[in-house]
Amino acid sequence: MNQFIKSNKLWLSLLGLAVVIVFLGFLFRPKTFDFKVNADEAVKLMNEPQMTVSINDIAGKQLIDIRPAELFAQGHPKNAINIPVRNLLDDESLELFDRLSDNGQAAVLYGSDELQATAPWLLLQQLGYQNIKIMKGGYTPNNEFKEPVLSSTEAMGLDTATMKAKPMLTEISKTEKKKPQVVIPVRKEVSSGGGC
């Protein structure tokens, strides 16, 4: 045994060093995110009305503007912080979210419209930032918050009576196609009359 160790001393040392490096690398690997919310809880978040904040209910809440920096520079509400969507998971952003969460302060995410903020909000919710809510509506180029128009909500704007016209049309077209088949026997009657 001792002879084996002595003869392979160099290789065994390198192997031991490699194991240590891999282990240390695993311990000090870059920080990864884990979802704090499982699938069932995430589905429940989809229909959580308490997470939506109306324009009249933003007092005392930290506004987070996720629009591009250029739009933010053109105008924004007082005390709003600009964090463009692609920077939401940067270290600085996460430090801010952690600080707000630790202080028990609610934050409101908003964009140009509600759609722009929906996916980022739901992502942050699943990462455990339950104090971050979403604005109902968005911030317009006129530098004001605006509630969504009806067609941008989940209210149905479809006139189903209009759409029911299609089955009627197919019935009509079927009867029209049958008419030539009725005419063809008439031609046979005439030919039989001439067969003397």
Partner: peptide
């Protein structure tokens, strides 16, 4: 759905669980 909002949320959850080639009809049925 009728607008984008429900579809957007469903898209995010589906994409989280690695559903590929998942899209949203912009603006919804309205």
């Amino acid at each position: 759905a009728n607008s984008d909002l429900t579809a957007e949320k469903a898209w995010l959850l589906g994409t989280r669980y690695s559903v590929y080639r998942l899209y949203i009809m912009k603006g919804g049925l309205n």
